[in-house]
């Protein structure tokens, strides 16, 4: 019996959401009176022994270069072999795009109940129940898993990373790796930008900004804060901003530490995607904008007058001339 966590990497670097999943797996293992181990696929440049600092006892690697080409089918088969060899009863993923593609396949292979979108450690006091986000962030459901094996997909930014000190043992795992049926033709990443789902701070703009030419108000602040940028649905629909920036019920649901909404009225569908943010700031000239009801801090004012003041104040705070 053990807890196995899938450590997701991109271009040889471990994703931040994987450290959250590692901490989550370690604390789940502690609750179950067992240890947490990790599985890493493909060639990774990061120091894997350092995963010990997040409570991982052993890191299993399959450094097959063909695994740098992501195919959920191949990944699920390899992870299911790892789960069998390590005797894992619980497998933890980050509920990011890779986790969402692999975990359901693994669920079928291991006959394991899957809870995706978990936001808290499992409650093991009476069975095995995991709290997850439902109704696009408007509520939570406590899901009881009845199968012997369980899979949990942890929502990014929902669980604090905790460091314990320590070094993990790193060992190669002997598994068979199938040829991929999905060929990755090209990867197009926006370099230097923080992925929206993993960002601590998100600066977001709506129709109140009047046009894409004014987006420097959003991007300048985001750059100063090391934040990701986002937008409301109408803004993506009229192509002021790319689709992948759309947060809300039918876009991406995010849970950053700080969400700053500029010129967004806060329709219920938008709130659904952002209401798990820890601190919400709303800047809108309409005092009746529904977003103010969901906000922690607000400024009723014209973004074109307010934002330059805020950008100046952040520059002073950060010591930027």
């Amino acid at each position: 019996m053990s807890v196995l966590v899938f450590i997701d990497q991109s271009e040889g670097q471990i994703k931040k959401s994987s450290y959250e999943a590692a901490s989550y797996a370690a604390q789940t293992a502690e609750k179950l009176g067992t240890v947490a181990e990790a599985i890493v696929l493909g060639t990774v440049a990061d120091d894997l022994a350092a995963l010990g600092n997040y409570g991982i006892k052993k890191v299993h690697t399959v450094a097959d270069a063909s695994l740098n080409n992501f195919d959920a089918q191949v990944y699920a088969k390899v992870i299911s072999q790892a789960a069998e060899q390590t005797g894992a009863d619980v497998v933890v993923f980050s509920n990011n795009t890779s986790g969402k593609a692999i975990a359901p396949r693994l669920s079928v292979r291991l006959k394991a109940g899957l809870v995706s979108g978990a936001v808290a450690l499992p409650d093991t006091s009476n069975g095995f129940t995991v709290k997850k986000s439902v109704f696009s962030g408007k509520a939570f459901a406590n899901i009881t898993v009845s199968s012997a094996k369980k899979i949990i997909g942890l929502n990014p930014n929902s669980f604090n990373i905790s460091t314990t000190g320590g070094t993990a043992e790193v060992a190669a795992l002997s598994v068979s790796v199938d040829a991929a049926k999905v060929e990755v033709v090209s990867v197009n990443k926006v370099n230097g930008e923080v992925p929206l789902s993993e960002a601590d701070i998100v600066v977001s703009g709506g129709r109140g900004l009047k046009g894409p030419e004014n987006w420097n108000l959003v991007t300048d602040l985001a750059k100063l804060l090391g934040a990701a940028t986002a937008c409301s649905r109408p803004v993506a629909d009229i192509h002021w901003r790319p689709h992948h920036e759309h947060v809300g019920q039918t876009g991406l649901a995010i849970a950053p530490n700080l969400y700053i909404a500029i010129g967004i009225s806060g329709a219920i569908q938008h709130l659904a995607g952002v209401n798990r943010s820890k601190v919400i700031v709303v800047i809108n000239k309409d005092p009746e904008a529904p977003f103010f009801k969901a906000a922690d801090y607000g400024i009723v004012g014209d973004a074109f007058e307010v934002m330059p003041q805020i950008i100046d104040a952040v520059k002073k705070l950060k010591g930027v001339a």
Binding site: S10, F70, K181, V182, E183, V184, S186, V187, N188, E198
Partner: peptide, 10 residues
Amino acid sequence: IEGGEETDKA
């Protein structure tokens, strides 16, 4: 994908 997009063929 996180922070971008990927083109796949199958």
